[in-house]
């Protein structure tokens, strides 16, 4: 049952310009887990996510997805298992219509047209966006774009969903509905975000990344209520855990 795991073993990554972005990262994630990844800007979150589907390959150390070790030649297989939703939906949605965009992945998997249509239908249904199939992405609202971006990935039926800031720059209502969607998925989920309330709502476990290494790993509620730990990493308590009095100063 717990085949679908992600395992990082002492992963290091250095960019061509010499920046050490990951300095020995190790963790494993088991089937069905929802894991939040938090950390300051430049801590290494994005670099970490880009390793999960082989967009970047480690300079040293091992990444294993399921039973498959990440290597150049295993990338196509790994990309079927791991669906990545990138931060900016405008980069994620590159096809001229919602239908074409959601169909892009299944078509690349070589599915016959009938199956592709089913997949598109099912994926759009799950994100409540069936009515948008014929629309071009630039006619969608921010919340609709985020929902469709998720659909493009679940249409490939990955085992693991990896998301970078799934609700960035959404209005509160759209953000709430994205949270609802995420909670509805049974996939293993890995979500990187500065939105700590979202992590608290969606994830059972949380990793804190600081300066290219994991500085904390544990239940989300415990980590996200540790004000000292968060402050050390340039983060602060989720709003839901902040008493009004901790905001400092009273408003006139």
């Amino acid at each position: 049952m717990s085949h679908h795991i992600i395992e990082f073993r002492d992963v290091r990554f250095r960019y061509p310009d010499g920046t050490d972005a990951l300095k020995g990262v190790s963790f494993r994630i088991t089937h069905g887990e929802s894991v939040g990844i938090v950390g300051a800007n430049g801590a290494g979150k994005s670099t970490l996510l880009l390793h999960m589907n082989g967009h970047l390959l480690p300079t040293s150390g091992d990444v294993t997805i399921g039973e498959v070790p990440l290597r150049k030649e295993t990338r196509p297989e790994i990309r079927r298992k791991v669906g990545v939703v990138f931060q900016n939906p405008d980069d994620q949605l590159f096809m001229p219509t919602v239908f074409d965009d959601v169909a892009f992945g299944p078509l690349n998997l070589g599915l016959p047209p009938g199956r592709v249509r089913e997949r598109v239908h099912e994926a759009l249904r799950r994100v409540n966006a069936l009515g948008l199939a014929g629309k071009p992405p630039h006619h969608l609202s921010g919340g609709q774009k985020s929902a469709v971006a998720i659909a493009t990935v679940i249409a490939m039926e990955p085992d693991i969903l990896v998301m970078d800031e799934p609700a960035a720059s959404l209005d509160p209502k759209s953000r709430r509905s994205v949270i609802g969607l995420l909670n509805g998925f049974t996939h293993s989920k890995i979500i990187a975000s500065h939105d700590l309330d979202l992590i608290l709502d969606v994830c059972g476990r949380c990793l804190v990344i600081g300066d290219g290494a994991i500085v904390a790993d544990g239940p989300a509620e415990k980590i996200l209520s540790d004000a000292a730990l968060l402050a050390e990493n340039d983060l602060e308590l989720p709003l839901t855990l902040q008493g009004r009095h901790t905001m400092g100063g009273t408003k006139p």
Binding site: L50, N53, H55, P76, R79, R80, G83, V84, F86, N88, D91, Q92, F94, M95, D100, A103, F104, G105, L107, N108, L109, P113, V116, T152, V153, M156
Partner: peptide, 24 residues
């Protein structure tokens, strides 16, 4: 830079050189 991010998103969804299309 945007093109690079788009390319990443395309690869993540199985792109291998040709943009597929199916309407007939």
């Amino acid at each position: 830079e945007r093109a690079e991010r788009i390319y990443g998103a395309m690869l993540a969804r199985g792109f291998h050189g040709e943009v597929p299309s199916m309407r007939r």
